[in-house]
Simulated assay, not measured.
Amino acid sequence: MGYKVEKTDEQWREELTDEEYRVLREAGTERAFTGEYTDTKTVGIYNCRACGAELFRSETKFESHCGWPSFYDPADSDAVETRTDTSLPGRPRTEVLCAACGSHLGHVFEGEGYGTPTDLRYCINSIAIRHVETA
């Protein structure tokens, strides 16, 4: 695909824990309400846990009560990419990936009535991101 950060499967396995690898590289999902950042309200940025690219900022994080950290906009229009996910029969979704390394982050949903400026909910696995506190 031509990502800025490209590594072999072996390199990813060496750098990531088994659970991080399952989510980031195999498009897994952590259980709802178990993630480290589900309820975090601390100001900062959220980077890709695999490659460190900036993905989201705390000012776009909101409480959706879905069990995963939710954001209404990426940090930059080029920070993430999306593609159709047909892994659930009869229920296509939009998968969210890190644009720098292609790691699976979660899914994005539109028009759910949260009243966000974009009407989007980026539902992101905590294990796929790392929060860096800022002043």
Rank of each mutant, 00 (worst) to 15 (best):
S64W: 08
T42R: 00
Q11Y: 12
D18Q: 10
L88V: 15
W68K: 01
E19D: 15
Y21H: 06
R130Y: 09
P117I: 11
L24H: 01
T40R: 06
T29W: 03
E15G: 14
A135G: 13
N125H: 03
W12D: 09
E19K: 13
D78R: 10
T82E: 12
I124M: 01
F56M: 04
T38R: 02
P92N: 10
R49L: 11
R22K: 08
S126E: 02
C66K: 00
G113I: 10
L97M: 09
K41E: 14
C66G: 03
T82K: 04
A135V: 12
D119Y: 09
C101R: 00
R93M: 13
K61S: 07
V80Q: 04
D18G: 07
A50G: 11
T94G: 06
L88Q: 13
G44H: 06
W68L: 05
S126M: 02
F71R: 01
P74E: 06
S77V: 14
H107K: 04
P117E: 10
A128T: 02
E36Y: 09
F56D: 04
E112D: 11
A53T: 02
E26R: 03
R130A: 11
F56V: 05
E26C: 06
Y122N: 01
A50M: 02
N47E: 15
K7M: 14
R91S: 15
W12L: 11
G28I: 04
R25S: 06
V23K: 02
D9Y: 10
P69H: 03
I124G: 03
S87P: 03
G113T: 09
E10A: 13
V108S: 01
R83C: 13
S77H: 14
L105E: 00
D85P: 05
G67E: 05
